[in-house]
Design a protein around this nucleic acid. Structure first.
Length: 448
RNA sequence: GGAGAGGUGGCCGAGUGGUUGAAGGCGGCAGUCUCGAAAACUGUUAUGCGGGUUUCCCCCGCAUCGGGGGUUCGAAUCCCCCCCUCUCCGCCA
């Protein structure tokens, strides 16, 4: 949510900045500006009428206590007249306010000044790390490796859940668990995060707070309770959503709270599965583990004071990179342009990992500074001092990291000519000391 | 899922239709006392929106007692719906 006052004070600036994110936005800003002006005029009218009613009602109370029923009745009539006027003005006020708020909810965050203007072409390479070496032999892609090493059963997942789901088996499942634990442990003990285990199913208010709603409703899975038990249906919303990222429940953890002085920064890390509809066909883009409906991710969330958030974004991105370095995966950091950022973000870095087989970069992390945008929507504030007025915190999130494409890169980059895959050293202790992923001696019976 | 109880300010808790934004207590902050601290005493202690003044100082209005709707001249208080918590029963990993 953008600051209503900022939009009021400098609509041209807001329009110019939002225009870099989508051509449809300036017109919305104009409309909100009109609504805001009219709404405030109406509020003055409304407040006056309500004050009048309040005063009269008090007088009626006094008259009743004094036993003067006749005069009281007379006043009651005048209050009724005031109430009629109030009802009309109130209806107008509510209509203006509703429209303003719902339109404001559809505007994305203002991009930071350091963000390049433009679409995908304007992506800015910040750094590259590690050698993008190619294999000395013809490597298999991760789907072939996953099959030959008996790590992932795509066919079974397809039968049971449909395309876009995976059945990790044996060492494949252990690898997931190992990656999750490695990431959590590093973020907790080296980077000072506190682990959270949030619920995976949330009410609509939560994705609204983080900005997935109302614009990206179709990207989330809806969870309905059985029809006869559907009791609340505010605004036609389904009952629940499956989280598309841990950001949704974790960022809402302090929803509505005013954090005391010295509470910031708050650093939270959570592993959760993530569910995304990913409607449409992607072909090669979606092969195997590239783009899936359900995946595992370790997510970092930081709440900090406004003046800290620029540094916090750099730090968090570095912390995600640290995991890639531990896994010895070549990666690059890219600064996303205005047209490419997620809704709530003011500035986003993507981390891409290099795949030796396809020679492509695969996105494994997105680190965003949402400034006060999510904090406004979720209403999360803090006090600098015991007596200071509450201010909105700044909120940041970064994947640290998303697993499927890590697995792709790990398998493809670390494969050896004999068809096995080397396990990076830091990961071995999380996998019972396994150094190589090799075809199991007695694989699961496999049906295709 | 069934039956019952309840949700009030940072916390505890009073308040069942009238000047209650809300008693009292605790905590916090400021002051008096003290060499200092404790104790005691005094004062103070919500958020949002709008208007004025004009800049962070104050003044005024409105709203807010889980959320929404209703009754009424007037609702924390009465009615309806929803959300949440607790107790017992049922079911269940």
């Amino acid at each position: 949510m953008l600051d209503r006052k900022k939009l009021r004070d400098d609509p041209e600036l807001v329009k110019a900045k939002l225009a870099t994110r989508g051509e449809e936005y300036p017109a919305v800003v104009d409309r909100i500006f009109e609504l805001d002006t009219e709404e405030r005029k109406t509020q003055v009218e409304l407040d006056d009428l309500r004050r009048e009613r309040k005063e009269l009602s008090k007088e009626i109370g006094k008259l009743m206590q004094a036993g003067d029923a006749a005069q009281a009745d007379e006043k009651k009539e005048s209050v009724k007249a005031v109430n009629e006027k109030t009802a009309a003005v109130e209806a107008r006020f509510n209509a203006l306010q509703d429209e303003r708020i719902s339109l404001l909810g559809t505007l994305p965050n203002l991009p930071d000044d350091s963000v390049p203007v433009g679409g995908e072409d304007a992506r800015q390479l910040i750094k590259e790390h590690g050698e993008q070496r190619s294999l000395a032999f013809k490597g298999k892609d991760h789907v072939e490796l996953a099959a030959s090493l008996n790590l992932v059963d795509f066919a079974a997942a397809g039968r049971i859940s449909g395309s876009g789901f995976q059945f990790y088996v044996g060492l494949g499942a252990e690898l997931q668990r190992a990656l999750i634990n490695l990431m959590l442990d590093v973020h907790i003990s080296e980077h000072g995060y506190r682990e959270m285990r949030p619920p995976f199913i949330v009410k609509p208010e939560a994705p609204y707070g983080t900005g997935q709603l109302p614009k990206f409703k179709e990207e989330m899975y809806h969870v309905f309770t059985p029809l006869e038990q559907v009791v609340h249906d505010p605004g036609g919303q389904p009952d629940y959503y499956l989280i598309p990222t841990a950001e949704v429940p974790v960022c809402n953890y302090y929803g509505g709270c005013i954090l005391p002085p010295d509470a910031l920064p708050v650093k939270l890390v959570a592993y959760t599965p993530c569910w995304r509809v990913e409607a449409g066909h992607y072909g090669h883009e979606a092969r195997g583990l590239r783009r899936v409906h359900e995946f595992d991710k370790v997510e970092l969330v930081v709440l900090c004071a406004p003046e800290e958030s620029d540094d916090a974004l750099e730090r968090m991105t570095g912390e995600a990179e640290h995991i890639l370095e531990l896994l010895e995966l070549p990666y690059r950091r890219v600064l996303l342009p205005t047209g490419d950022m997620t809704f709530a973000s003011a500035k986003t870095y993507d981390l891409d990992v290099y795949s030796a087989v396809s020679g492509e970069w695969l996105e494994v992390s997105s680190a965003s500074n949402t400034s006060d945008f999510q904090a406004r929507r979720a209403n999360i504030r803090f006090r600098r001092d015991a007596k200071a007025k509450p201010e909105f915190v700044h909120m940041l999130n970064a994947s640290g990291l998303a697993l499927p494409r890590i697995v792709i890169a790990l398998l493809e980059n670390n494969q050896l000519e004999d068809g096995s895959v080397a396990v990076p050293e830091p990961l071995q202790r999380y996998m019972r000391g396994v150094e190589r992923l090799a075809p199991p001696e007695n694989p699961l019976p496999f049906f295709d």
